[in-house]
Design a binder for these strands. Structure first.
Lengths: 333, 333
DNA sequence: AGATACAGTGCAAAAGATTGCAACGATGAA
DNA sequence: TTCATCGTTGCAATCTTTTGCACTGTATCT
């Protein structure tokens, strides 16, 4: 165990008091140029690195950002984590990662453990609206993607996203449409569906004479749910000609189901996803989807944490439609 | 800002000295039963939680595990992160996440930043063999997937993995075979290829009369490389009937290229991947691949960290062939 | 010249927890 | 009675850093 060099050693080497070294480190200008140089030389010479723990204890705050997400394996959250980590580390912060596995009890435990580390702030994708509410209240928290009572939420305008998807399919001439939603317990899922259904209703009112079949199914956000719900939808007597989903993972699962049933995309079936994960542009055919500006979301969330604006102020970003090859105009056979 | 309750408050509430409270917390048995109960009640009552910083400063060690990976967006590393996080948090540790983006300079910076936090240990997927070598030497580090001079490596027997893939394709009757390798700078990639080539050569010696065409290409591990290399391989005059890749991501990119060329899998082309990421069993067709026991890898890596066995001792696990629907016997047209 | 201001520096007190050492009271032995 | 022992507990030092306060010496003003 090599013994570490502390601020005391630097002070002795430079022939000054520890306080002075500290002031040099803090770039405090009330320190003589000559002494500053002497101290900096000593720091160089000894290879001194400030002890984060001592500083944190004294200041009662750390350079840690807590990030609690349901599942790092989900490409959407992985992307979020990547951006948060990049931005945080460029500002000198490190990120504490915690998985909640979509389990309220685990989430509560994780949040508690993280809070015990006195992080500068918490970026949270909550799974349970109730369990952790008071745990994080007043704790410099920002919520991403999903809301939590009394906390700043930064995310996308989900209604608008749903609206865009519906509008896209309608304008392509589809008149047998289905919407594959997420878990009905989640606000995000409900909002996306409401936006989608809203556009459908709007169209029906504007064109009351046009026949329009529409249905909705619920499930999880993952691949498997996409496949299962897809099978259910496509094996009906009159299957839809277009399906919008609440996540790209669902959409990719759905593509699998479509292939099993023998449908070709986009010829027999148009699909539009949600999120625009990296894989979306790599599946075959490339997936038309509603893009969430994730880099921007991460940036704003982190800024909110670091600026400590105690008043919660939600931030809803604009989703955008990314047209690729999984949707096509319906010839109207 | 609500003021936090410290060990001092507990001591006063229980009418004992702080040292005694500390001993109760440490489950030190040299403390009277009666007093222990009184202290524990005070802890409950006040909702006291020990300050991690004070403890860490005193003990000069933390409950943090540093995890440095090239890219959290890569499903393989995401899966690794998930397992590490699960195991670590179940032992009371938190994980510090850092992305190196496959960039030696960034990696060096990240490792340095993490080490400054005095983690209990570092789990590292190194991108550069040279830059961080002396940075982490003697620092309780475990390397996963890729080796680093003088550090314990836990990973899969890559040669064996390559061997299994080649053996599978040969036994299916394929005689025009290609291997899509990873970056030749990476030991992992070289070993997998050597294993693969080794089995090919072995077969040639055993059956010198049988015609056997074999070629190799190099590239990155990601989807895009898979697609590009795939196009190059498949657009030859006599394309291979079977291709093994060095990663599932490559394999999935390759599937895309195959579809572009109009080849059906597994009828016209057999593909075997490497890693067995979750997506592998969800693509169409489901991907035959060489599975890495990632949960086991994470478990061993963490155990090595926590047991602080200072002598580096590599651990090579057995990869296993997972047969799914992307490979098929070659009829020998 | 004497008083005042001021920049620059040292000193010591925090911050919260752990732990070696001393002290204490009770007991038993000499 | 005195001494040693044992099991517990309190005291105080320690880990490293920051920062308010006091102090020094110089410069400026009256």
């Amino acid at each position: 165990m090599l013994l570490t060099v502390t601020i005391k050693h630097v002070a002795k080497a430079a022939g000054v008091a520890v306080g002075t070294v500290s002031r040099v480190l803090a770039k405090n200008k009330t320190v003589n140029e000559e002494i500053r140089i002497r101290v900096e030389e000593a720091i160089q010479e000894l290879g001194y690195q400030p002890n984060t723990l001592g500083r944190s204890l004294r200041l009662n705050k750390t350079d840690l950002i807590g990030l609690v997400i349901p599942d790092i394996t989900n490409p959407f959250f992985a992307e979020l984590a990547k951006h948060v980590e990049m931005l945080a580390s460029s500002e000198g912060y490190s990120v504490l990662l915690a998985n909640s596995h979509d389990d309220p009890a685990a989430e509560q435990q994780q949040v508690q453990a993280l809070l015990g580390r006195l992080p500068r702030g918490l970026i949270l994708v909550p799974v349970s609206e109730s369990t952790i509410g008071d745990l994080v209240s007043g704790k410099n928290t920002v919520t991403v993607d999903r809301p939590l009572q009394g906390q700043t939420l930064v995310g996308v305008d989900n209604r608008r996203g749903g609206y865009l998807a519906a509008d896209h399919l309608l304008s392509l001439g589809h008149r047998r449409i289905a919407y594959m939603s997420g878990p009905p317990t989640l606000d995000v899922a409900r909002e996306r569906r409401e936006g989608f259904v809203g556009r459908i209703r709007e169209f029906q009112q504007q064109h009351p004479s046009q026949p329009l079949a529409f249905q909705t199914v619920d499930g999880n956000f993952d691949y498997r749910a996409g496949e299962e719900l897809g099978n259910r939808l496509l094996r009906q007597e009159h299957p839809p000609t277009a399906i919008a989903t609440a996540s790209d993972q669902q959409a990719i699962g759905l593509m699998r189901a479509a292939a099993d049933v023998g449908l070709s995309i986009p010829n027999d079936l148009s699909i539009v996803g949600f999120d625009d994960i990296p894989l979306a542009s790599l599946v075959l055919p490339r997936l038309t989807t509603i893009r969430q500006p994730l880099a921007e979301i991460a940036r704003i969330a982190l800024k909110a944490i670091l600026s400590r604006s105690s008043t919660p102020h939600d931030c809803k970003l604009e989703p955008v439609l990314v047209e690729r090859n999984s949707t096509r105009a319906w010839p109207g056979r």
